[in-house]
Nucleic acid binder design. Sequence first.
DNA 1: CTGAAAGCGCTTACAG
DNA 2: CTGAAAGCGCTTACAG
Lengths: 332, 332
Amino acid sequence: MRQNATLKKIAERLSLSISTVSRALKDHPDISAETKKKVTELADLLEYDPNPYAVNLRTHSSKEFAVVVPSLSNFFYHSFIRSIEEEAQTLGYSVIIYRSANDPKIEQNILKSCRHKRVSGIFIAITTETMDMEPFLKLDVHGIPVIFFDKVPQYESCNKICVGDDHAASLAAEEILKRGTENVLGIFGHLNMSITKSRLEKFISVLSQANDHINLNVVHASSADEAEQLTLSLIPNYKKKNFVIFCMSDEILSGTMKAVQRKGLSAPKDLGIIAISDGMIPKLFYPEITYAETSGYNLGKLAYDRMMKCIAGSSFAQTIIDESKLVTGGSM
Amino acid sequence: MRQNATLKKIAERLSLSISTVSRALKDHPDISAETKKKVTELADLLEYDPNPYAVNLRTHSSKEFAVVVPSLSNFFYHSFIRSIEEEAQTLGYSVIIYRSANDPKIEQNILKSCRHKRVSGIFIAITTETMDMEPFLKLDVHGIPVIFFDKVPQYESCNKICVGDDHAASLAAEEILKRGTENVLGIFGHLNMSITKSRLEKFISVLSQANDHINLNVVHASSADEAEQLTLSLIPNYKKKNFVIFCMSDEILSGTMKAVQRKGLSAPKDLGIIAISDGMIPKLFYPEITYAETSGYNLGKLAYDRMMKCIAGSSFAQTIIDESKLVTGGSM
DNA sequence: CTGAAAGCGCTTACAG
DNA sequence: CTGAAAGCGCTTACAG
C-alpha cells in the first residue's frame, strides 16, 4: 500500500525543513523564489496534496458543507442538493448528505456529528417534530453557521430561506380568477404540514375577496393515491360544469392527473388544472400544466448565498422568501 | 466559541492519564470497571465524541463513502445515492457526493481528493470520456476500494455493478411479441451511449428471431424534446394500424408520452407503449406504462454489498448484473 | 490496572 | 530567508 506524499518527504528529498516546504507551497513572501520553484516542482511530481485531516486538526477548519433533509426521495430536496453542490464545487467544498428520516433523534445525532467534524456550515430542513432549538444554538456557539431551508423552526433569530407559500398560492388563485371559473376543487396536503396551512389560507382569502360567487370545495389528501381517489370520487359533482382543480403539491398533482386521465377528461377543454410545483411533473403532460413555481434549485442558490455571507462574518439573522413565479402551460 | 470535550479535559478532571481515558471509552479489558464507569459518565455529561480528524490522522481510516456521478439531475442516480445513504447510515458512515459534470479532468481531481481524504470507498459512474484507468489503479494501491456502477469501464479486473441492459431489452421485446403487434417503433438514445448499443442489439435480435414479419422502425433521440418531435412526425405512418412504441429510457418516454397525449391517442386502445425505466414516470400516467425496470435503488444495494465485501478483504474483482423485471401497467 | 511517550501531517509564532 | 519547536486530539506499543 503506497503512501501519499507529505511535507516531510518533500523536505527530506530537498534537504529543507518541513516549515520551509510548507511555506513555499503557500507562496509565503518570506521564501525565496528559487526555493519555491524547487519545492513546487517536486510537489507536483509527487502529486502532493495536504492531508485534510491534519489541516483540520491544526486549523479547525474543514471544507465541507452538510445538507440535512428529512427524506431523499423528494424531487424538491434533490434540486436543492444539486444546487448547493454546483456552487460548493467551484470553491473546493464538498457536500455531505444526511437524512434525518424525519426523526428528531437521528437529526440530533447528525448535528452532533457535524459539530465534531467541524463542518463549515449546515443547510437543514428540520423534521416536523423538531422542537428543541438547543442543538442549533450550540452549533452557533461553536461558530458553525446554520441555514434553515424549506422546513424551518418558529424560532425568530436564525437564518431561514423559505418558499413563498403565500405568494405561490395567490398566484394560482389569481390565475383561477382570470379564467373566470366559479367551481373550484382545491386539493391540499395534510393539515399537520405547515405549508398546507399557509397555502390554504392564502388561497381561500384571495379567491373569496375577489369573488363572492366562487364555489370552492377544499379537500385534503396525504398521498398521491389519496389524491387520485378523492379526485375520482369528486369529479362527478362537476359534471357538465366548468371547473378548475388546484393541486397544492407535486404529489397531489400526480395523483389527480391519474384520475383526470382515467376519466378521459382533458384540460383545458373539460376542466382547468393548476398546481404549485417544482416544475418537473407539470411538463410531462400535454398540455403542460400551469403552475406556480417553488424551486428547490433557486432555494439552494439563495441558501448558499446566505451561507457564504455568514462564513464571511455576517452575524445577523435573516429570513428570505423565494418569491414564486407563474409558469404558464396549456391547462388553464 | 466553546470547545468540544477532549480526552485531555476528561483526563484532567478525573486526574487520570489520557491513555486510560481513551482505553476506558473503548471498553478495553485492561481498565477497571470502576474507572470505566467514572469515565463514561463524565464523557456522557460533556457529550464527548472523538474528533474524527484526529482519529483519521492516527488510524488512517475515515468513515466516509464517496459517490461520484456525471450528473445529479438524474432520477436514476438519485435513487442510487438514496440507496447507498440508507445503508451507510446504519453503520455510521457518511456519504459525500461528487459530480464530475461528465468531465474527465474534474473526475480526476475528485479521485485525487478522495485519495487524500482516505475515504473508505468510492462508488463511481464514470464519464463517457474516461479512458485512463491509472487513477483507479492508484486508489487500489492505496487500499481504497472502488465500485463502478452503471457507467463502467471496459477494463476487466475491477468491480462493476451494472444494469441488465440486455435483459431489460429482451423483456420488453418479449412483451411486444406477446401482444402480437407487428408494427413497432423503437425510440433509442444517442448511439454514443453504451447502453443504447446493448439495448438496441438485444431488442432487435429478440424481435427478429421470433418473428419474420415484424416491421420495426428504429430511430434515435438525444433529448425528451427530440423524442417528442420524432414521435409526432412518425405517428401518422401508423394511422389505422395496430402499433407499439418502445422507449429506451425515461427521458425518451417522457417526450414520447407528450406526443401521444398531443395526438389524443390512448394506450392500449390506439397503440401499445412499453419502456425501460426506473419506474417513477410510468406510474404518472393512466393507464400506467408497462416497463422493464432498471432500478438505481437496487443497484445501490448491490453496490453497497460488494463494497462491504471489499472492505472486509475480498480482493477479487467481480461484475454483477442487476437483472431487470417486467412491471405490468395497462399500456400494452 | 495505569501512565509516559511517540507519532499521524500539518501550521505558525518565535528565533536567528 | 530558513529552521526548531510546540501543539491540534487521538491511539497504541512499551514499561511498570
